[in-house]
């Protein structure tokens, strides 16, 4: 099924079938010339995006803003709750009902898990989840899938190695579920204390994929078609020496890429700290800045689809 997006809330990647995701990626592909500024569009002329960011965000917020503006629409909202009625103690439910009356579509980032699902109950207009705590971030997942498909020609059949903080990273939970649905081969590389939670592993296996688990990147990097790197957060380690050891073991630099497959792509949701050395940026493998740009066409596709401007 690839229709029925008009009025739809984009809350969790679990709400989408493979066909629906493929359709979003197809529409995003057509949006590329507009996203790059090569073509002008009035597709969402007069439409307003309510942009409510209760937590800091750079890429997600700016790319939603860029997507709406490129399509001829406009954005209003806040990028921190300070100074808004939220600081006076207004509930999220009340804020959503108010913004629902001012806008045609709402994008929400909130520290509490389930915030987007709850907001969808209170709003008549479509809600796009831009991250709810440690929960879901479906538009990030879609732009990750878009980047893989664009770089490798397809998603299924690729061996995707995901490395970094797999325990707390919300990006890798949604992405690995989606990749499993597409039939990609998965390997999870992390120190044992930051491995993929059992609950997620179980869910991924129920989708028909048996992920491999490893704590040594060097053992598996040569088999990767896609290397998806995430940040290991210092604050997860009580002992700074232990953090240094782990961070060093998962750092991608030129010697690490010596025996990798030709055409292997490296992705990262950004911001990066030390996990990818800047010297890697110039290699053919580095796709993370293109990945960040892909947030624009994918979000353009979603905005125009939920607003009914594109089927």
């Amino acid at each position: 099924m690839s229709d029925g997006f008009k009025g739809m809330d984009i809350v969790s990647i679990r709400d989408f079938s493979r066909d629906q995701i493929e359709h979003v990626l197809d529409v995003a592909e057509k949006m590329l010339p507009i996203a790059k500024g090569e073509e002008k569009s009035k597709l969402l002329d007069g439409k307003i995006l309510g942009s409510l960011f209760y937590e800091p965000s750079t890429r997600t917020r700016l790319s939603f803003d860029a997507a709406m503006t490129r399509l001829g629409g406009s954005t209003l909202g806040f990028d921190e709750p300070k100074g808004s009625s939220v600081a006076k103690g207004e509930t999220l439910a009340d804020t959503i009902r108010m913004v629902d009356a001012y806008c045609d579509v709402i994008v929400l980032r909130h520290p509490q898990e389930g915030a987007a699902r709850m907001s969808a109950h209170f709003a008549d207009k479509p809600i796009l989840n831009a991250g709810d705590g440690a929960g879901q971030h479906p538009t990030q997942t879609m732009l990750d899938l878009f980047t893989i498909r664009k770089s490798k020609g397809k998603i299924d059949g690729n061996h995707v190695v995901i490395v970094g903080d797999l325990k707390y990273g919300r990006t890798v939970h949604s992405l690995s579920e989606a990749l499993a649905m597409f039939g990609a081969e998965l390997t999870f590389v992390a120190p044992p204390s930051l491995q993929m939670p059992k609950e997620h592993l179980k869910h991924i296996q129920s989708l028909g994929t048996k992920p491999k688990i490893s704590s040594n990147l060097e053992d598996v990097i040569k088999d990767a078609d896609v290397l998806y790197v995430t940040r290991i957060q210092k604050e997860r380690f009580p002992d700074p020496a232990e953090y240094q050891k782990v961070a060093g073991a998962f750092r991608i630099d030129l010697p690490m890429l010596k025996d990798v497959k030709k055409g292997m792509v490296i992705m990262h949701p950004l911001p990066r700290v030390t996990e990818i050395s800047p010297e890697v940026d110039k290699t053919e493998h580095a796709k993370y800045f293109e990945q960040a740009f892909n947030g624009v066409p994918v979000r353009m596709a979603l905005l125009s689809m939920v607003l009914g401007a594109v089927e």
Partner: peptide, 15 residues
């Protein structure tokens, strides 16, 4: 109640 302390239903929301 939800066992997740970070769940929106454990905050002061009318849900």
């Amino acid at each position: 109640k939800c066992s997740n302390p970070g769940c929106i239903t454990n905050k002061s929301e009318p849900v």
